[in-house]
């Protein structure tokens, strides 16, 4: 049962990642693209956790943790750049 669910969710997350990339490619504005990348980070968290569940291991948890905790720092840096140009003032 769980295996089937996991497979379905894999497909859904894969689709959403593809859609993220679509948004990233077409834009049109830079904030659109930044948001698309940020969402990709979040979807990757789901992908990694899901993969861990599929494999029945906890080894990959920290990778997801790091994306969750630090992934937004790059988004912050890019946004700060858009706002002020200079990210460390």
């Amino acid at each position: 049962m769980l295996d089937t669910v996991i497979l379905i969710v894999f497909a859904m997350i894969g689709l959403s990642l593809l859609l993220n990339v679509w948004r990233l490619l077409v834009g049109p504005s830079v904030p659109d693209r930044i948001l698309a990348l940020d969402t990709m980070y979040i979807n990757s968290i789901a992908l990694i956790i899901l993969y861990g569940m599929n494999m029945g291991t906890e080894l990959y948890f920290e990778a997801a943790l790091l994306i969750a905790m630090l992934g937004f720092v790059s988004t912050v840096a890019v946004c700060k750049y858009l706002l002020r140009g200079d990210i460390i003032e």
């Binding site: 990959y60 920290e62 990778a63 790091l66 994306i67 630090l70 992934g71 720092v73 790059s74 840096a77 890019v78 700060k80 750049y81 990210i87 460390i88």
Partner: peptide
């Protein structure tokens, strides 16, 4: 490697934005 790559990725972006 995944953990290292993720952290390096963030540092690189900050560096490049700078």
């Amino acid at each position: 490697l995944a953990l290292t790559q993720l952290t390096v990725e963030v540092v690189t972006i900050v560096l490049l934005m700078l």
